[in-house]
Amino acid sequence: MARETKTAAPSPGEGAAPPAQGPGAQDPGAAGQRREQRRRDRRSRRYRRDVKWSPYAYVAPFFLFFAAFGLFPLLYTGWAALHRVSLTDPNSMEFVGLHNFTRLWSDEFFWNALQNTVTIGLISTVPQLLMALGLAHLLNYKLRGSMFFRVVALTPYATSVAAATLVFVLLYGRDYGMINWALGTVGIDNIDWHNGTWTSQFAVSSIVIWRWTGYNTLIYLAAMQAIPNDLYESAALDGASRWQQFLHVTLPALRPTILFTCVVSTIGAMQLFGEPLLFGGSATGGPEHEYQTLGLYLYEQGWVNLHLGRASAIAWAMFLLLVLVALVNWLIARRLTKSEGGA
């Protein structure tokens, strides 16, 4: 309000000009100017309102959608987790308190799924990020047809999980799979990729690696191209080898990017679902639940066994675990930046 009066203040001064010109035409001129003045006021008010509120209006769609499809499900899931609900009759809920959560402590299938999620997460994320880093470094050189390689790197990411996984299922077939055939030519017996704990987890991880390496490569590549060339030049002048340049120039500059990919990959690994589901063709994740991830166990409880309450509790457990992991990530990141500042 105060501001409004301030902008309105010069108007008398402006309005005072005409009377000096012609006192005869004072009345109608003053009235017209006052009207013009009011119009201007209105316009500036509208303009200010526009500046102040429009940004909110522009971001509103996201928040509306988020509220409808993110926040509401999240809260509703939390509410459902406190109940015994069956998918056969989702509207009748029986309150059971924290039973669905406490039972997870003694639910060996849950712990098995958690363990699988962590193992598969590790054996898919670590090699994937390392390979992405290496590939990005190679692509960063002046290459003939570098555009082509960059597009190629991204194609697996653009492939649908379903299509990719089905092909991998065939590749990993026990009797007629191409991988076993190739191993056979060097004298290794058929491996049962689907039924061994390590073999199946490796197979599932390889699908994840195949799909996401290119994506991370491009992110690293973009960050690498933002590193000023002078740094490399002066490093070269100081006699640093390529490897030393990579170690002491590229890596430190990539630190925030690496952290970002780590966070994103961790979240992705935690939610791993499509690959193991399609690899086994069912929610059990192998005869001994060898590659049943948390996402898969959630799905089995909710959509196969039809226990929505239990599934909701698992979903919330996953959410809390992710929050925990994010916290740890944040702490590490803070520690890293601090040590950087100290050095």
Partner: peptide
């Protein structure tokens, strides 16, 4: 109903 089962029919 797994791919290897399908293949086994013709083999």
């Amino acid at each position: 109903f797994k791919p290897s089962w399908d293949q086994a029919f013709s083999n």
